[in-house]
Design a binder for these strands. Structure first.
Lengths: 171, 171
DNA sequence: CGCCAATCAATGCGTTGTGCATATGATGCG
DNA sequence: CGCATCATATGCACAACGCATTGATTGGCG
């Protein structure tokens, strides 16, 4: 299974480049894509329990990458990246690209396009609903999604503009 | 990244089907493919440190899935699956298939063949040497490799017959 | 208007899995 | 025969997680 090896590579690269684990990286990328989300939302995306997500946020706050702000309700927390956090998220995405590019270099441009199309088709079958799509795309570069042929998962590239950002990812 | 989601699915399925983690599953599959390997060999394949691999083997022995036998030298250990371990390895591979099949069902047979060819090409760029290939293929179904169009990584389908099995995977 | 169920975040506690450093036993070579 | 080397195993500490629970806040309903 190529997926396994690809993920190995990706994890190693992200860890080496930013000193972060997979969940931390996913959290940064997700919060960057959707600032203002709650802890519960993040838990669903990164696939951790709610308490574990609290600790995850604790770690990121301690590293100065994330800030907790007050959400609409005083019982919800609004997660935002600091400047350093935003740079870290960029670094994660850069590491992602660096891990993937040499692999795609094995293929001709035409083959690469075909592969991307087919993989997109497979990915489309992976996530029917919005939370599922968010989970799948937790390490996706949203800029790449909008600039290229478009992400095969419609729900992820931009929030529902009719809702306040904090509520867009509600489970 | 489709690879991420595919691995999520795979992990969940294996855990649900056999009650095993990713490293345990990989160990079982690898030992099934190459009985008689040493602990150090296994460490390289599953990507753990040597002590962690010892504990991993401890767990598998305690579950009655693996036996430690004496290797050629009395200082090396020869890892073999018990009957239950062999069944467990089969279960892992079955879970793997069950996780992957519905995804491939999204594609036409023609598209599927193309995807497999392209992914194989990418995988071939992932592992130049034998240990690397073993690491990549740690969850591969060897039977599928030999029956189908063939694994893109040559090193993995069968051991070097000129060497005793224990030494074939030396790092 | 006040109570109560629901919701979100946070904490206590125990477990698991891992790495680093080191110990133990076996081997081969000078 | 002694010593460097190698494979395995163990001591120890730590990081990350889940479950159960608590505390704070909110919205609904009588």
């Amino acid at each position: 299974m190529t997926a396994l090896a690809v993920m190995d590579r990706l994890r190693a690269r992200v860890a080496a480049g930013a000193g972060l684990g997979e969940t931390e990286a996913a959290a940064l990328v997700h919060v960057q894509a959707w600032p203002g989300g709650s802890v519960g939302d993040l838990a669903g995306v990164v696939g951790l329990s709610q308490p574990a997500t609290v600790r995850l946020v604790d770690r990121l706050v301690e590293k100065g990458l994330v800030r907790r702000e007050v959400g609409r309700n005083r019982r919800t927390v609004s997660l935002v990246l600091t400047d350093a956090g935003s740079r870290a998220a960029d670094a994660v995405l850069l590491a992602r690209t660096e891990a993937l590019t040499p692999l795609l270099a094995e293929l001709s441009p035409r083959e690469r396009a075909t592969l991307e199309r087919l993989l997109g088709q497979v990915a489309a079958g992976l996530a029917e609903d919005r939370p599922g799509a968010l989970r799948v795309c937790r390490l996706c570069d949203r800029k790449a999604c909008t600039s290229g042929p478009g992400c095969p998962l419609q729900h992820t590239t931009r929030p529902d503009p009719t809702r306040p950002s904090g509520a867009a990812t509600r489970r």
